[in-house]
Simulated scan of single mutants.
Amino acid sequence: MQRLELIKKLNAFLLDEMPQYRQEAAQWEENLPAQRRLLRSLMNVRPPLPLSPAFVKLQDELLGAEREEKGVVDGAALPATGDPRIALWQGDITRLQVDAIVNAANSALLGCFVPCHGCIDNAIHSAAGLQLREECRQLMANQGHEEPTGGAKMTLGYNLPCRYVLHTVGPIITGELGERDCEALSSCYRSCLELADEKGLRSVAFCCISTGEFHFPPDRAAQIAVSTVREFLDAESTEMRVIFNVFKDSDKAVYRSLLGPNR
């Protein structure tokens, strides 16, 4: 099936479920980039609903092809920093082939509902597929309350090259940074590592938790991230490998100053 035809079929599935968007969708151009952006938008706004096997099959075909086109990055092959247990990599976290990547989630834990938003939560859910939102819905229904700051939950990775996703809710900074905020951020890293270790995972890639939409100062966040990870790895008898994933040049520079050059 041609890519544009596949995407249009997926859009038709979603518009049958959400007819309130038909009029707006009809205004989008018929070319591939526009229809693909429409699909991501519809996937982003779709509430957790039962998934049609026919939709899932087509969605997985598309997302699997896009995963291979972007290129899968083997986390085990990334060079270590001065600490052989830690690597630093700049790029798209949804390309990493590791046991788990970490998602900076919100307390609802259902992903970002803003169409094509630039946050990591949106990127991960968009690349994984709608099964991820459904599994998160089931987790939250069983939990019966919003996810607290500093904890961690684990789901499958679906169409991501990683096996699992660790979801954690970082602190939201609205004023002056406080000690409780720092302790909460440290708890995010520690909770993810503890859950990964409990589940027998051996490689975890962290995004920069709370430094985007949640406004945690990037320099201090990196210091907390590195010190918490080192403390955990020093204290536990684990062979886990940790990758700090950054997207911005400025974040890479901060982490490089903390971790030193590659070996």
Rank of each mutant, 00 (worst) to 15 (best):
157 G>C: 10
162 C>L: 02
147 E>D: 11
146 E>C: 03
92 D>Y: 01
99 D>Y: 01
160 L>C: 07
128 A>H: 10
111 G>L: 07
93 I>F: 00
161 P>L: 01
145 H>A: 14
121 D>C: 09
109 L>I: 10
91 G>S: 08
127 A>D: 05
125 H>T: 13
160 L>E: 03
106 N>A: 07
169 V>K: 01
130 L>S: 09
173 I>R: 09
171 P>Y: 13
157 G>K: 11
141 A>H: 15
151 G>H: 09
151 G>E: 11
165 V>S: 05
100 A>N: 08
141 A>P: 08
112 C>H: 13
89 W>Q: 05
145 H>F: 14
138 Q>I: 12
150 G>P: 08
120 I>W: 00
161 P>Q: 01
151 G>I: 04
112 C>E: 14
142 N>I: 14
158 Y>N: 05
112 C>T: 12
129 G>L: 12
116 C>L: 12
92 D>M: 04
175 G>Y: 06
148 P>V: 11
149 T>G: 00
127 A>I: 06
131 Q>I: 12
112 C>P: 14
107 S>T: 02
111 G>T: 08
95 R>C: 10
121 D>T: 07
109 L>A: 13
177 L>S: 13
170 G>M: 04
92 D>C: 02
136 C>Q: 10
108 A>T: 13
123 A>I: 04
148 P>D: 14
119 C>R: 05
137 R>P: 00
177 L>W: 13
114 V>R: 11
152 A>H: 05
